[in-house]
Design a protein around this nucleic acid. Sequence first.
RNA 1: GGCGACGUGGCCGAGUGGCUCAGGCAACGGCCUGCAAAGCCGUCCACAUGGGUUCGAUUCCCAUCGUCGCCUCCA
Length: 451
Amino acid sequence: MLHLYDTATREVRELALREPGTVSIYLCGPTVYGPPHLGHGRATLVYDVLRRYLEWSGLKVRLVSNITDIDDSIINRANRENRPWRDITTKCEAVWFEAMGKINVARPTDVPRATEYVEQMVTMIGQLVDMGKAYLTDDGVYLSVEQVEGYGLLVHQSLDDMLAGGGDRDVVGAGNKHHPADFVLWKLSKPGEPAWPSPWGEGRPGWHSECVVMSLDLLGEGFDLHCGGQDLKFPHHENERAQAVALGKQFANHWMHHGFVVDSEGEKMSKSLGNVDNLLDLMEHYDPRAYRMLLLQSHYRGPVTVSQDNIDASVKALARFDGIARRFKTPAAAADQGVLGAFRTAMDDDLNTPAAMAVVFDAITQANAAADGGDMVRAHQLVAAVHSIAEAVGLTFSTEEEVPAEAAAKAAALDAARAAKDFAAADALRAELQADGWTVETTKAGTTLRR
RNA sequence: GGCGACGUGGCCGAGUGGCUCAGGCAACGGCCUGCAAAGCCGUCCACAUGGGUUCGAUUCCCAUCGUCGCCUCCA
C-alpha cells in the first residue's frame, strides 16, 4: 500500500483509507484569472500521476479539485480591463482545461466552483459566528484562531512564534481583528464588486472558506488526503483546517505538499517575480509529454528547475522510451511481474517516481537486449510491463509520425539508392532529410523517419 | 527573529553505515551498419567543508559555509 509523507506528522506513513478500496482526495484548484503557469502544471501533473497510479492499483479514486472563481485577483483584473468578472472566469476556466488536456491530466472526478457554494459557505460561517468562534467587524467576518485547538499544526509553529516572525509586515485588517492571525471568512463588498447576500451584509467568501466547505460537502468528514503546493500549507490549508476544527469536524487524515518550480537561479517561480512562462507556451514549443517526464524524474517534494537543458534531456529520454513502442508494436505477452513489483515498491515509497522511472528504463534496456539476443518472449514480457507502467503514470507513446509526401518520397529514393549501392546519393538524401529536422533510420527493412 | 528543506559525478537526479556506490542526458571506446541512426556492451565522472561516533560514513551526530522556502497574493 502507498506510503506518503504527511506534512502534519512529518513522517512517511501509510495512506489510510477511510473506506477500503476507495480513496478520497481534495486538491486545491486554480484561481481562474490568468493562464496556467508552470507551477500549476506541476501541481496537476503530480496529482494526476498519484491518481492514475492509485487507479492502476485497482482503487477507486474520488478526486475533487475546485475552481476558485471568486477572488480579489479576478476582481482586480476585471476592473483593470473594464470587463465583467464572469467573462474572465469562464474564459480562464476553458483555457485551464484546454491546457490540462494537452498535458494529459485527467479531469478530476468533481470540479466544484466557489460560486456554486456561496450559500453553503454562508451557512457554515453563520455556525461559526453562532458558536462564538467567528466575529463581525466593519469589513467582514473573521475566525478567531485562538479558539482553534492546535492552530499551526501544518506549519509546526506556535501562534506566538508566527507573530514574532512577522517583522515589518502590515497585518491585513489589523484595525479590525481581535488577533493578528485571525483571517477573513466573509468580506463585505464595496459598491460595484461581486456580492452575495448574507446575514452580515452583501459580500463574498474568503478563499479559505471555499475549500473547506467544498471538500467536506463532496468528500465528507475525515477524507483521506488533502494536497497542494507547499505554499498552500500556510495560511490556506492551516486555515481550512482551522475552520473544520472550530466546527468540531474531522478534516483531512493526511496532508501532501509538493515542491516548487524554480528558475535557473533556484528561486521560486512566482507570479510576482514576473519570470513565468505559461504552460501553454511550453506545450507549444516542446513535446507535451516532456514536462511530465521531467517531473517523473524528480521527486515531488523537491524543487524542480524547468530549464532548456532539463526539458531537452526529457525530450531525449522520451525518444528512448518511444523506441520500444516502435520496435515492439503490440506486446503479446503477460507483463513481467518482477518489473511491476519493483515499480510498485518505488511508488509506494512516498511516490518515488525517479526510482520508478529507473525501473522503466532498466526494463527498456533489458527488453532491447533480449530482442537483440533473439529472446522475443522475454522482450515482450518486459515491454508489456513498460506499457502497463506508462499507463500508471500517464505517459503515452508516440509512434507513428505523419510524414509529408515530400519527405516520404525522399525516403523512398534513399532506399532505392541504397539498393543500387549508390551510397553517395543515399547519403545526400539523408543529409537533406536530417537538415529538415528528421531523425533518419535506414535499416534492412527500409528507411523510417521521425521528428 | 521563528519554522522548514537542501547541498551527490559535465548536467539532471534517486539512494545507501561496508556488499554490485540507481536511472536519464552528454562524452568516449567497441559490436552492429556500405557509412550513419537506432539498439546492445563497456569506459569516464560523486557524495559542500571541518570535526565526532564507528572496525568502517557519502549515509548517523555536531559545527561551519552556502542555497532555497514559509511566517496572512501564490501550485
